[in-house]
């Protein structure tokens, strides 16, 4: 049995808390694993480093990926996810402050499934997370494994 978990890649603890709050407010009870930089996210996905012995039944249903990250940035994380056959079909939603065209363009061209800009207004943020959860956790059929 797989756990429909969410991998949140976010270095800002405030944003982390707000995202988790927004998920809760939308009654999304899935397990959330937080990676605080790009390297940690890759370790989690590829069972390396601190995550070498993690539960293999934890398969992310969706990855919420920030772009500005310490060590390995979000676009590089995305590139490696798409380059590895174990992860290349995972849904990845870029969740970021930036609405710079260059980020959006690079994100989509590297194979991001969505691109969501974190709104400042928390109520709008909750709405955005609601839609994300609805689509990626409930409506979307995960790719065959």
């Amino acid at each position: 049995m797989e756990n429909k978990m969410i991998l949140l890649v976010e270095d800002n603890p405030d944003d982390e808390a707000l995202t988790i709050r927004a998920l809760k407010k939308n009654n999304i009870g899935n397990k959330v694993v937080v990676a605080r930089d790009g390297a940690e996210a890759l370790d989690f996905l590829f069972f390396t480093g601190a995550f070498a012995d993690r539960d293999p039944r934890d398969v992310p249903q969706v990855i919420l990926l920030d772009l500005k990250l310490p060590k390995v940035d979000g676009l590089e994380v995305l590139r490696q996810i798409r380059a590895d056959e174990r992860t290349h079909l995972l849904p990845v939603v870029i969740l970021t402050s930036s609405k710079e065209e260059q980020d959006r363009l690079k994100g989509y061209s590297l194979g991001a499934n969505s691109y969501v800009r974190k709104p400042v207004d928390f109520n709008q943020f909750v709405e955005a997370v609601r839609q994300l959860g609805l689509y990626w956790l409930i409506l979307n059929e995960a790719p065959p494994r």
Binding site: D14, L18, R21, L67, K68, T96, S97, V120, F122, F125
Partner: peptide, 14 residues
């Protein structure tokens, strides 16, 4: 675009 908005989200969100 990235860094100035993040604290605003914190202020508004909390």
């Amino acid at each position: 675009s990235h860094d100035l908005r993040a604290p605003l989200r914190t202020i508004d969100g909390f």
